[in-house]
Amino acid sequence: MTALAPRVPTRFLPVLATVALFVLAFGVGSARYDGFASGQVIANLFIDNAFLIVLAAGMTFVILSGGIDLSVGSVVALSTMITASGLKAGWPVPLVIVVVLLTGSTLGLLMGLVIHKFDIQPFIVTLAGMFLARGLCFLISVESVSIKDKTFRAVATAAIELPGGVTITYNVVIALLVVAAAMYVLHRTRFGRSVYAVGGNESSALLMGLPTTRVKVGVYVISGLCSSLAGLLFSLYMLSGYGLHAVGMELDAIAAVVIGGTLLAGGVGYVLGGLAGVLVLGTIQTLISFQGTLSSWWTKIVIGVLLLVFIAVQRTMVRR
């Protein structure tokens, strides 16, 4: 890393560190376990975490603007519930998709408006949003609703062949498209640049004449949209809707974004960092399942330790 440092701008270092960690974790796995270093294991990382990748992309916008969104896990659950019960009631698939995406964006819009117009902490507002979305799930149904729609099942089980006999699902394609779109919006549009500006210093952004209201409300709409899209992907993955789906997923998303080098203070970070963060979390889970004797709670401990290491590293970098 020291040899690279002069040529690579420091702002890319946290993301590179995460990618290096991913490569390292994967290398350790490949060295220790037969069959770990296969293309399909990498493909599975994407397949099993497609929804988390989408969530992390949305969360990156919110965190970059200096906010936080605790409602994303519940919105995922609400989306699976609407999808499952909508399909059960015989709605056509396109209608279901539109309704789900509209619900997520509307929730995001409402939270954004309350946060901005009334100057209430994002933490509290999105916490209320989290309760609301989860409660709405149970209003629809307390039971788990399975998805039997033929079109939906066909999309869910369809496999796309890649060279080398590796298969992925449509979920992965959608997730990667979302990441690409998020990168485009953040780096190539006026809105994206304003997100960085508002996160860096809101007063300066306001004085520069940037549309801070649009940015501060907009990031929550984007996060809501991403959450509901992630919910659709999650319904494809689980083929059911349930109010207890995705409990605590907001913390995974935040952890992935932080591990990916995005500063919680806002203004610094990349969508790709969130993607790398998700892959690191996924690799740890895969490692622990390959190991076999380690229990699942070690995943939590390792994620906690990783979070700690990354914030400590970020802290020293910011101080310099």
């Binding site: 913390l251 952890a255 699942s296 070690w298 330790v305 979070l307 914030i311």
Partner: peptide, 27 residues
């Protein structure tokens, strides 16, 4: 001591803590 944002600093223990509790009770 380290000047980390409280929400993140305590998120570490929130995530790892439950793992530790499960370690103590062996699940």
């Amino acid at each position: 001591g380290m000047g980390i944002q409280p929400i993140i600093a305590t998120l570490v223990l929130m995530t790892a803590g439950r793992g530790v509790a499960m370690l103590v009770t062996e699940g």
